[in-house]
Design a protein around this nucleic acid. Structure first.
Lengths: 212, 212
DNA sequence: GCGTGTGAACAGATTCACAGCT
DNA sequence: AGCTGTGAATCTGTTCACACGC
């Protein structure tokens, strides 16, 4: 009995779905039609029981004694994370990291489209990166509107991050990926995912110090 | 009673320590000498009770009725995550993302030093990025040894990630930051942190689809 | 027989609420 | 009076182990 999604999915489950989808796309490309929880979980780096529980949250798409139909699962997980649709993205802060993301091929392959670039530095404004012109901060709302952007990426120095977040929210953006270490304050309707590169490195250092 | 660290810290605590340290450095710079759990927690984006529990794991460095001494806390957290020491890093995969990390000023400021660059593309080998020459994959072990690298960063396409991880481990690296979506198989003595940019974006899309 | 789906047990992380120190 | 440190309660997430359907 499939239960489309009356319920909200647990955050931990949501964070693993992209990984499952990636493995499924690989399987599809190699012509695999059915995959077991053990095979899929192993390749996605999770415990098989956890995978089964995650998938059962989406509905009952497996066949007992057989496994999961790869196409069905791609369709159902894809529906949940918006695969096969196009998601316009604005990047604010066109330093090295912002430029790298602007060029990042993998994002394009998964449906993310560079809808606009914003930076405050006069040397950058007017030039283009990945074929997209860099606009000044006071045009942020216009850039978001013109590109119909749905996701904002913050790759500015930490000190500017909160101001940029405020401006993005004012411009109607409700999903933000933040690369500044600064935690952002936003209204409850806005989702922020933070990636703290320095923090990740320091966690590695913790392990280096405390393990052989 | 301080209990240096007989026990291993919970993973969740470790992942928050860099954030606390950042706020503390800011406070230090503005001349603040004592800070309460509420002030520190708010700025770090966590619940005050959680902050207090995290800090109490390191030992008892606060004063009841007063708060935490900023310098003491910087010293103690810094000891745990290796602040004020230099950590040489090798980056494998000098595409846009690898180059961005090579130039990333914030990492340098926190003690991470670019010890080597490796890439398989003949056009890149021999050229330099951020003042460091790019070497071919078969010189990886030599690059690690010469630079005394302790951390390996993988910014290659997904298909090469596992091979690079194997080579890094063979070269003696035991801490890896992996930007490829591919989950890595490594010996139990090796720590891997994964950053999946596409996955993060897809999680944002999930929210976009399922919330107003 | 095989592999999914899931109740129940377990583990980990967070928050509450207050005792205890300054 | 104020704020830390922490037992107890709660919430979230993971694994076990097996009933159930193919």
């Amino acid at each position: 009995m499939s239960q489309p999604n009356a319920t909200v999915l647990p955050a931990a489950t949501v964070s693993r779905l992209p990984g499952y989808l990636r493995v499924l796309h690989e399987a599809e490309d190699s012509g695999v039609e059915v995959i077991s929880s053990v095979a899929l979980a192993t390749r996605a780096g999770v415990h098989p029981a956890l995978l089964r529980r995650d998938l059962s949250q989406l509905g009952s798409y497996g066949t007992r004694g057989v496994g999961y139909d790869v196409d069905t699962l791609i369709r159902e997980i894809g529906r949940v994370v918006g695969d096969r649709l196009t998601w316009p993205v604005v990047i604010v802060g066109v330093g090295h990291l912002g430029q790298a993301l602007a060029h990042h091929e993998v994002l394009r392959e998964r449906g993310f489209e560079l809808a606009g670039l914003v930076d405050s530095s006069p040397e950058l404004i007017g030039s283009t990166v990945a074929g997209v012109p860099i606009r000044p901060p006071d045009e942020l709302a216009a850039v978001v509107a013109r590109g119909r952007a749905v996701i904002g990426v913050i790759t500015t120095p930490a000190g500017q991050a909160q101001g940029v977040a405020d401006a993005l929210v004012d411009a109607g953006i409700r999903r933000i990926l933040n690369f500044a270490a600064q935690p952002l304050e936003v209204p409850a309707t806005v989702t922020v995912r933070g990636v703290d590169l320095t923090g990740e490195m320091q966690v590695l250092v913790y392990h280096e110090i405390h393990e052989g």
